[in-house]
Computed example of a mutant assay.
Amino acid sequence: MTAEPTSYTLDSLSERLNGLSNIDALRTLAELFPGEVIFSTSLGYEDQVITDMILANDIPIKIFTLDTGRMFSETYSVWKKTNDRYATTIETYFPKADAVEKLMTEKGPYSFYDSVENRKECCGIRKVEPLNRALKGNKIWITGIRADQSANRQAMTQLEWDESHQLFKFHPLMDWTFEQVTQYVKDHHVPYNPLHDRGFVSIGCQPCTRAIQPGEDFRAGRWWWEDNSKKECGLHTHEEVFKA
């Protein structure tokens, strides 16, 4: 791993955050890196918790979302409710129109069902490229990742160095259970996506997301036609974070 281009190393920043509550940790990061801390929200349960922590406590952290062009109408609904509830404006990043047009023209609207490679291509155009633009110029990326969401994420730590994007990633809810997340939403009256009440635990693009059955793996509702070991879109893979 190359040296982090900041006065803080991974170890020293981890030590600075050690023992702090999530809210205090977020506030500390905002103070240490003013104007350079950004939070990516998909408007799901976990991200709504972090949004509440940031906005209810007036922590100066930028918030953005990726609109892939294939979102559920319920996602847009909770997006509006969130803006209204906190009197905020969540910044939006869209995929590049020419890339989407080329993909749809050459491979049609459902190419991602045909192969993992096609699905990753679609994710790359609709999610990864816009994410790269959103993160540019920032030093801290806040995410809603939890360890028990997938096997790939259990190897991740709360604070990491992302070599690909050259910034720190901080996952406030890394050690939280799903039950803790939903209880926070209930206790704090946080707006949430009504699809969660219909068995959707992880909500992404409409064609790629389904509800899960009791006892199914957390990620079973995403890209359900693929093997579980391949269910990452390129935003948060362990390999991406640590590649040399």
Results as ranks from 00 to 15, higher is better:
72 F>V: 08
232 E>W: 02
178 F>S: 11
142 I>A: 08
69 G>A: 12
51 T>F: 02
105 T>Q: 14
180 Q>I: 08
115 S>P: 11
158 Q>P: 10
161 W>T: 05
116 V>P: 11
200 F>Q: 12
235 L>K: 06
6 T>A: 14
6 T>V: 06
89 T>W: 02
43 L>Q: 07
117 E>K: 03
182 T>S: 13
242 F>V: 06
101 E>Y: 04
86 Y>R: 00
192 Y>C: 12
96 K>E: 15
168 F>H: 15
63 I>H: 06
134 A>C: 10
121 E>Y: 05
131 L>Q: 12
163 E>H: 10
61 I>N: 08
85 R>C: 09
32 L>T: 04
107 K>N: 13
100 V>I: 14
203 I>K: 02
62 K>I: 05
16 R>C: 15
108 G>L: 01
126 R>S: 14
234 G>I: 13
54 I>R: 00
179 E>V: 05
93 Y>V: 02
18 N>F: 09
14 S>D: 13
226 E>Q: 14
144 G>C: 08
5 P>L: 09
134 A>D: 11
197 D>C: 07
230 K>G: 03
207 P>S: 09
186 K>C: 04
152 N>E: 15
33 F>E: 03
50 I>W: 09
22 N>K: 03
65 T>F: 08
112 F>I: 02
153 R>T: 08
171 H>W: 01
21 S>G: 13
47 D>N: 06
26 L>N: 00
32 L>P: 07
9 T>S: 15
42 S>L: 02
86 Y>P: 05
183 Q>D: 15
27 R>F: 00
4 E>W: 00
7 S>W: 00
46 E>F: 04
196 H>V: 11
158 Q>L: 12
119 R>A: 13
77 S>Y: 04
170 F>P: 07
222 R>C: 14
23 I>R: 05
101 E>W: 07
53 M>E: 09
120 K>G: 06
